[in-house]
């Protein structure tokens, strides 16, 4: 390598690539150029603070007790909820299994909520991505990413205490003893993936739970089995308490003097691949926050506060959609 005489100003680069090629060539620069233009846009045409408009359909599956399909842009998730019966006497030779905490949740005005749901595993959440939803996901065992998202969804569901144990208990009509439980199998299947699977999956799970109607069950003393009334009119809705919605963000650092940090709401697949830093806020009713996650980069607290603001705005959009499709929230 030799040093040349003082460099003349570089000639304008005569190589120009069509946008699609440039996107593949240098994805980070491609995104940065978009964000640095005025007004700042994203390759998809959205503003950095615009979420994709969601759509919701419920009760389209024949064999599920509750179901919902949520689409945000090109990400679509179908969720089905099915109830099966966990008999306390089953598999234990007729003995009833008592939990170590000694609480079976009775009395105390229905307090001790969430414990049975958590301890007995009455809610089984799963996210299936191996459906050919995007080119990286083949049928087969769930990838690490899918397992991680499943774990997050499950944690959110339990921590928000949306499902009460009381609605899942099956009682002996005479003694008011808990003889069995409903177990809810919540299966979310991703049909199409273009980034931000968490928000769509969570919304579909919540909508499916809200639309779930379980048969009315009771413990038959003579046969010692749980039996249900077949009439559809006797089905009861699950008592889902309140609403919670997640909002995910990706953060990119353009560098000091070039725009600093930009927060992108509802990132799509391309943006998720470029940005390392992520924030997720779970907003509750009344502008409250239930869960915040941040990772992948170093940032100011002000960024997180900005994300919380956007999440509470987004909550209102979801709330309105749910009210339109499912009726007023209980």
């Amino acid at each position: 390598m030799t040093t040349a005489p003082p460099p003349s100003p570089p000639p304008p680069n005569p190589l120009s690539f069509p946008p699609a090629t440039f996107q593949k060539l240098a994805p980070k620069i491609f995104l940065e150029r978009h964000l640095q233009s005025t007004p700042a846009t994203r390759p998809s045409g959205r503003n950095p603070d615009t979420f994709r408009t969601p759509s919701l359909h419920t009760n389209s599956l024949s064999h599920a007790h509750g179901s919902a399909v949520v689409r945000t842009g090109d990400t679509a998730v179908v969720c089905g909820v099915r109830g099966e019966v966990l008999s306390l006497a089953a598999g234990t030779g007729g003995r009833i299994v008592v939990l170590r905490t000694g609480e079976d949740g009775r009395g105390k005005n229905g307090e001790g909520e969430g414990d049975e749901v958590r301890e007995r595993g009455l809610v089984v959440t799963n996210l299936e991505m191996g459906t050919g939803c995007s080119r990286d996901y083949h049928p087969g065992p769930p990838t690490d990413f899918a397992q991680a998202v499943t774990a997050r969804l499950h944690r959110l569901l339990l921590s928000n205490k949306l499902i009460s144990s009381q609605s899942l208990r099956i009682l002996d009509p005479n003694t008011e003893e808990v003889k069995a439980y409903w177990v809810l199998y919540i299966d979310a299947v991703v049909i199409s993936l273009d980034g931000n699977v968490l928000d769509a999956a969570w919304a579909s799970i919540l909508a499916a739970l809200r639309s779930t109607r379980l048969p009315q069950a009771y413990w038959d003393q003579d046969t010692e089995v749980v039996v249900c009334y077949p009439e559809v009119s006797r089905y009861k809705s699950l008592d889902v308490k309140g609403l919670a919605f997640t909002a995910s963000f990706a953060v990119i650092d353009l560098g000091a003097g070039k725009g600093g940090k930009v927060i992108l709401s509802d990132p799509d697949e391309f943006e998720e691949g470029v940005c390392g830093e992520r924030v997720m806020v779970c907003a509750l009713e009344g502008e409250k926050v239930g869960w915040i996650e941040k990772g992948g980069g170093v940032g100011q607290v002000a960024e997180v506060v900005e994300c919380v603001h956007r999440a509470t705005e987004r909550f209102k959009i979801w709330e309105q959609l749910f009210a339109e499709v499912l009726g007023s929230s209980g």
Binding site: E84, P141, P215
Partner: peptide, 21 residues
């Protein structure tokens, strides 16, 4: 192991009084 499973004791689908036709 890679998914969240139901209770170990196993669950059964709801049994109805009369089979719905």
């Amino acid at each position: 192991r890679r998914r969240i499973n139901g209770p170990l004791e196993g669950t059964i689908p709801p049994v109805f009084l009369t089979s719905s036709t």
